[in-house]
């Protein structure tokens, strides 16, 4: 087993999936010769050639629209939008076509396009390069939204998406790209879509999170353990369809819950989780559920971004308030 970082794990997954299925094509801006601005698709063009990997014209809506036509014809396009903040020219295509073709045709056509983008903040980037727009996509019926937090999960989740027939958006937390390495099996394996991961078991409070915030929460949980607070951490992995069972199980167990994400707060993933807790575990709660999130403001430039994104201190504060309620 090799130790891989997130970039290497995703790259390995694509190598393996493209080898296995010749209908998979990779398309996007600079994904071929350049291997993508983060090198996630490096080597794919050399290995699979110009009939499988395309450096497209610079037009997100054109990339997605043609990918939809390809998928309807029978291919499986993996589409890169270079940064999450540049995905919106194609939003119309995702909302009005990609996610609803199965339904509109009553199952006659499927459209298994996988969109992927570097996601989120923490890399000192320019405007529009540090966004967390998962809510905008999770609200779309029929679209699978995945945000991995580890190299192992990333590879297995990609395999599951390639086995399935749903369109998906795969957000890659860019601050995790080279943050750490993990043992990743060389052989193919799958990690199920729609299933959360138990990051660590605990008895006092449940922290529900995903993406780059998982590591922030682990750091907070380590410090809280010193103070005698034993945190359980759940990594959602799939934002939509969300694993309600995992949420309810952990909340029933601890009776306390803090939800952490870097996206802005209002109407966000945390709000949806709280609604589900209200529906199924309200009477199990010993304290109100807390949210630690990005604020409801435009994602700031790097000079202020550390104040915007949740850090371990904010998570600890929320957990302690929940514990002392």
């Amino acid at each position: 087993m090799a130790k891989l970082n997130l970039v290497q794990a995703i790259n390995t997954a694509f190598m393996q999936e493209m080898e296995k299925n010749d209908k998979i094509v990779v398309m996007g801006e600079d994904v071929g010769v350049d291997g993508g601005v983060f090198r996630v698709t490096e080597g794919l063009l050399a290995k699979f050639g110009p009939n499988r990997v395309f450096d497209t014209p610079l037009a997100e809506s054109g990339i997605l629209g043609t990918a939809i036509g390809m998928a309807v014809y029978g291919l499986r396009p993996i589409v890169e939008f270079q940064f999450e903040g540049f995905s919106f020219p194609a939003y119309d295509g995702v909302l009005n076509h990609l996610a609803r073709i199965r339904n509109r045709s009553r199952g006659r056509y499927t459209c298994p396009v996988m969109i992927r983008s570097p996601y989120g903040g923490g890399v000192r980037a320019l405007e529009h390069h540090s966004e967390a727009p998962e809510t905008l996509y999770s609200h779309i019926p029929g679209l699978v939204v995945v945000i991995p937090s580890t190299p192992y999960d990333a590879k297995g989740l990609i395999a599951s998406l390639m086995d399935g027939s749903d369109p998906s958006y795969f957000f890659e937390p860019k601050r995790l790209y080279r943050a750490f390495k993990q043992e990743v099996p060389e052989e193919r394996y799958t990690v199920p879509i729609g299933k959360a991961r138990m990051v660590r078991e605990g008895k006092d409070v449940s922290i529900i999170t995903y993406g780059a915030m998982v590591r922030v929460c682990e750091e907070a949980a380590d410090s809280l353990m010193q103070k005698g607070i034993n945190c359980e951490i759940i990594d959602l992995r799939t934002i939509s369809p969300m694993d309600t069972d995992a949420i309810i199980t952990t909340v029933k167990k601890t009776g306390r819950c803090v939800i952490v994400h870097e996206a802005p707060r209002s109407f966000g993933t945390a709000a949806e989780i709280i609604a589900r807790i209200n529906e199924k575990a309200l009477m199990d709660l010993k304290a109100p559920v807390k949210r630690v999130t990005g604020y409801d403001v435009t994602t700031p430039l790097p000079k202020l971004e550390d104040f915007f994104f949740p850090d371990a201190g904010r998570v600890m504060k929320a957990v302690e308030e929940t514990m002392s309620f």
Binding site: V25, N51, S61, G62, L64, G65, T66, A67, I68, G69, M70, A71, V72, Y73, G74, L75, D92, G93, N96, H97
Partner: peptide
Amino acid sequence: SQALHAVGAAWAAKLR
């Protein structure tokens, strides 16, 4: 929107 879908399907046909 369908103009793009038509181009994509044609492109796929050519690739295949």
